[in-house]
Design a protein around this nucleic acid. Structure first.
Length: 271
DNA sequence: CCATATACCTGGCAGC
DNA sequence: TGCTGCCAGGTATATG
């Protein structure tokens, strides 16, 4: 479910409300991807200073250390004054004096991990290899082009890996490459400077637009306020195999790339 | 160092 | 119906 826009929309939906709250208790259900790393009871009394985002991770800054929260494939957060009885897929309740932050995650690829600091080994193990943030101005075209010149794999796989730029998942990778007119299988190193520039702009545009629209609701995205995506994001290619391209009416193709499905228009996107 | 495959887990759906 | 097989928005880790 969550790529950068969904994670950012989730962050915005509860960051202000949870800021300065004190942790009263932390309940964990079935195991998530990794253990918390410390006894849950050790977080009682901690104060939450704020919520940041790095790639698809949410960072809850505490007065001692921080919590790294990842939504995996199927996770969502809900923050409310009270929560109903936990269902079978609710695996965390962070109870504070401002409300309860609940993680709902059927597939349990998500995680909640405590680390003593962002620079600590625990945090860096997860954050250390992340590429640059695409939004907010640090994403530089020249540096992006220079990095891609060194990479021999298909551009779609480079985007998904997140080592050059973070936040682009399977949906937005297909969408950004369509916007840029680039075939997903094109070797990154073979992209010309102008095409990299188009891709750079497309990534920023597609992610920004999705954030503005409140996260796409292509499937079942729900923000921490409990709202679904406010608008259906009109996918140009994702999930549209066999349907006509919105630009040229060519039938959209799908293929497998590194065990993930990729969608593209064979006419609009050049190798 | 790089590129690729694998594993984790559950639910929904198409097809029989 | 009920079963089977396949697919799903991520990413650390192992392997070559």
């Amino acid at each position: 479910m969550p790529e950068l826009p969904e994670v950012e929309v989730t962050r915005r939906s509860f960051a202000d409300r949870i800021a300065s709250a004190h942790i009263l208790s932390l309940y964990l259900g079935k195991p998530l991807r990794w253990p918390l790393g410390v006894p849950a009871a050790s977080l009682v009394g901690r104060q939450i200073w704020g919520v940041r985002r790095r790639g698809k991770y949410l960072l809850l800054d505490l007065d001692q250390g921080l919590l790294l929260v990842h939504l995996g494939m199927s996770g969502s957060l809900n923050f409310a004054p009270e929560q109903p009885e936990a269902g079978p897929h609710d695996h965390m309740d962070l109870v504070t004096d401002r409300g309860v932050l609940r993680l709902h995650d059927p597939r349990r690829f998500g995680a909640v991990v405590w680390a003593p600091s962002e620079d600590s080994a625990q945090a860096q193990k997860l954050l250390g290899r992340l590429g640059v943030e695409p939004l907010g101005g640090q994403f530089d075209v020249t540096a992006f082009a220079r990095a891609l010149k060194k990479r021999q794999s298909a551009i779609k796989q480079i985007l998904l890996a997140g080592g050059e730029v973070v936040g682009v998942g399977n949906i937005y990778a297909s969408e950004a490459l369509f916007m840029a007119g680039i075939r997903p299988t094109t070797k990154a190193s073979r992209l010309t400077q102008p095409r990299v520039a188009r891709l750079h702009a497309a990534i920023i545009q597609v992610l920004n637009r999705a954030v503005e629209q409140g996260g796409s609701s292509l499937k079942d995205f729900v923000s921490a306020e409990g709202r679904t995506g406010y608008f259906q994001l009109e996918a140009a290619v994702y999930g549209r195999a066999g349907e006509p391209c919105r630009v040229c009416t060519t039938s959209i193709k799908s293929m497998l790339q590194g065990q993930r499905t990729t969608f593209y228009c064979p006419t609009c996107q050049k190798p």
